[in-house]
Simulated scan of single mutants.
Amino acid sequence: MKLQVRYFASIREALGAGEALETRAATLGALRDELIARGGSHAEVLARGRALRVALDQVMADESAALREGAEVAFFPPVTGG
């Protein structure tokens, strides 16, 4: 399925603003693991044990949330300022 992934704050600094990608992941957690498996900066910034928040279609979600075609996923640190 095709998704739009966006990164914010320090994650954006490491990975860029975001990307369109094709995935087989069924949940947010599986998508995170798929991104970690890329290695490099993705593995470092999204690593398990690092605190981060995730939103699905602009709504905070937990990693068990199911993905759907065309969804927008956003990753960001737990505290962001304005």
Rank of each mutant, 00 (worst) to 15 (best):
L3W: 11
Q4N: 12
V5R: 09
V5H: 09
R6Y: 08
R6V: 09
R6T: 11
F8Y: 15
F8W: 14
F8S: 08
F8E: 11
F8M: 13
A9W: 03
A9M: 11
I11E: 02
R12A: 01
R12Q: 14
R12C: 02
R12L: 02
A14L: 06
A14N: 03
A17D: 15
G18I: 07
E19Y: 08
E19Q: 14
E19S: 09
E19W: 07
L21T: 06
L21C: 13
E22I: 01
E22S: 15
E22M: 08
T23Q: 09
T23M: 03
R24K: 14
R24C: 13
A25M: 13
A25R: 04
A26E: 14
A26L: 14
L28E: 08
L28D: 05
G29C: 11
A30D: 12
L31E: 03
L31R: 00
L31K: 07
D33Q: 14
D33M: 04
D33I: 01
E34P: 10
E34F: 13
E34S: 15
L35F: 03
R38H: 07
R38V: 13
G39A: 05
G40A: 04
G40E: 10
S41H: 09
H42F: 15
A43L: 04
A43W: 09
E44S: 04
E44Q: 14
E44R: 15
V45E: 03
V45Y: 00
V45D: 04
L46P: 05
L46H: 07
L46W: 00
A47V: 09
A47L: 10
A47C: 08
R48S: 11
R48W: 06
G49I: 07
G49Q: 08
G49V: 09
G49W: 03
R50W: 03
R50Y: 04
A51L: 15
L52T: 04
R53G: 07
R53Q: 12
V54M: 13
V54H: 06
V54E: 03
V54W: 01
A55S: 15
A55H: 06
A55N: 01
L56A: 01
L56T: 01
D57R: 02
D57H: 04
D57A: 12
Q58D: 15
V59R: 15
M60W: 14
M60E: 13
A61D: 07
A61E: 02
A61V: 14
D62I: 06
E63R: 08
E63T: 08
E63P: 06
S64Q: 13
S64T: 10
A65S: 14
L67N: 01
L67I: 06
L67A: 07
R68P: 01
R68Y: 02
E69A: 02
G70D: 11
G70I: 07
G70L: 08
E72W: 02
E72A: 09
V73N: 00
F75Q: 00
P77F: 06
P77V: 12
P78K: 11
T80I: 12
G81M: 12
G81L: 13
G82M: 09
G82Q: 01
G82Y: 08
